[in-house]
């Protein structure tokens, strides 16, 4: 999986491309978890080029959202493909994870 960090306002945007499988989860955990303590709205994930998530991928997303809530905020998950939206819905994560269709408008609404 490719992870490309960039900065948008107060958030670090991590653009994810490829497969969030076990190896991808380890990469994401290392990139993501240390950034969550920066503040309540520190990270957004651009998932529009993400094409696959396994159970270990969902576990990292859940763990990251839990961590972000400890700092009073939510992780932003933008641009999930319909298949992944469906998968996260089946996994009962539609209420747990803050999913937005479009990163630009979500970030614009925050500022």
């Amino acid at each position: 999986m490719q992870i490309t960090p960039s900065t948008r306002g107060s958030r670090t945007v991590l653009t994810l491309a490829g497969k969030l499988d076990n190896a991808g989860s380890e990469q994401l955990r290392a990139e993501l978890l240390p950034r969550l303590s920066a503040g309540p709205a520190s990270v957004a994930l651009d998932c529009s080029a993400l094409d696959y998530v396994t159970s270990s991928g969902f576990r990292v997303l859940l763990q990251a959202e839990k961590e972000q809530r400890k700092h009073g905020g939510r992780l932003l998950l933008a641009g999930l493909t319909p298949a992944l939206r469906n998968l996260s819905q089946n996994a009962g994560l539609h209420t747990g994870l803050h999913r937005v269709p479009d990163l630009d408008s979500a970030l614009a609404a925050e500022s």
Binding site: S55, F58, L62, N90, A91, G92, L93, T95, G96
Partner: peptide, 12 residues
Amino acid sequence: IATLARMDLVGR
């Protein structure tokens, strides 16, 4: 409970 129970694929 139903929402929590769905969060793990093996459990489902």
